[in-house]
Amino acid sequence: MNLRSFLPPYRRQLFYLTALFGVSMMNLIVLSQDIRRIQSFKKVLPYQMIGYQFNGLDEFTKDISHIGYYTDLDIETDTAASKMFAHAQYMLAPSILDLNNTDHDYILFVCSNEKVAWQKIKEVKALPLRRNKYGMILARRLP
């Protein structure tokens, strides 16, 4: 078999193909590390979970159109708090979460610690309806 007939006719094409191959192989090394990492995760979890902190609340919120979402963290500057809010919104959809608006009948308290949440519940005169094992509290304002 004539190797020359298999190769592209121009050296610049050959050079480019070599570069493509080189970058592909470099990428493959990085990607194989990702694959190995995922395989090790899969031994513990079948897939990545998000918003598990809000598990169990959706059965109580599914018929509520708007829910206040109270947090003592600043979601504009705190990425983790911002992500938590986005997760809560996704998990509890189609209910709409209204950030730091405690005027709604139902309010979800997601605080840095539960003490702060209970204090705020008292302050807005609400009654806790449900607290899940992650310390998320759904409360209803007293009329």
């Binding site: 990702d34 694959i35 995922i38 995760f41 899969k42 897939y47 990545q48 979970m49 998000i50 918003g51 599914k62 992500k83 986005a86 997760h87 919104q89 996704y90 959809a93 189609p94």
Partner: peptide, 27 residues
């Protein structure tokens, strides 16, 4: 492989695209 592990996708998936889909489906 990656897609079937990261089943919820990235930030904009749960905050925008899939959120809208879920809301339109359930609301």
């Amino acid at each position: 492989n990656h897609g079937h592990f990261y089943v919820f996708g990235g930030w904009d998936a749960w905050a925008t695209w899939n959120l809208k889909s879920k809301m339109m489906f359930l609301s």
